[in-house]
Amino acid sequence: MAVLHSAFMVLLPMAYLVVWGSYMWLFLTDHPGAHRIVTRVALVTVFLDLVATVHLAQELHRLPMGSPLEFLGLLALAMLATYLVIERRLHVKNTGFLVTGVAFLFKFLSAAFTTPVRGASPYLSDPGFAGHAVFVLLAYTALSLSFLYAILYLVLSRQLMHRHFGLLFRRLPSLDVLERMSVGAVELGLPLLFVALSLGHLWMYDLADRVSPEMAALLSPYDPKIMATWVIFLAYAVGLAGHRFLGWRGYRMNVMAVVGYVVIVLSMGLIQHFFPTFHKFRVHAEPKTTLLHEAAPTPLVLTRGGGV
């Protein structure tokens, strides 16, 4: 089984590279052959990654989100899969080079630098937490795509402003479509983020009843990561309401999407680094020990490093 896992760790970055190469070929040449193969190659890769993820989850008896690098690997899969849904809905393939390029980068980093996660959180085996984590993943995937499409919008807009009618002009879809993709991704991501936050809260209260009073005291809804996520949620909601009800369009909307995402990345990075909250822990216990398997939960000790 370890051999199979190792094979996936080599195969998957290569598959993502092939997907990216195919979309680059399409973008650079607009070759009909590229048009025919890109989606198929991406679909095969998504399938392979799904198989690998399920296999890994079975092996580890937990979600493979035990470290930021594991999370990055799953984010690559979610990005590629979500991109394929958008591509199918809007029949636009020429933006794939950017999304698949980022997905490849994430997958490569994840595969190249991941080391076995020792003492991963037992919560990763808890279905309540797993649901929360999966929704977080999907929400951030959608917001990442919104960011990428907003970047493309701003780049194309700049090219048009400076009357550069080169490759980007010929290949990229209209500003209108790029904006719809960016806003559409937020429209998808925002409800997912809301569900993720709600599930997280519910799970936290449920968990508080099952752990020691000392540990329960640490489970606070005023956790910096939770607070920051609610602020981000509200900021995106205001932007979306402005778009829907006040007619915010174009440059303004897309700058907001870019700024919003940069704020997400920076705030999460800072919180992850400076605030060791219950979102950042490592269990000093047997890795496979879980809250679900034991009547008395294993005492948890907050440390720096690891975490989701």
Partner: peptide
Amino acid sequence: EEAISGRKGKP
């Protein structure tokens, strides 16, 4: 400038 004042960012 007068004409685009109500466009709210739409090109």
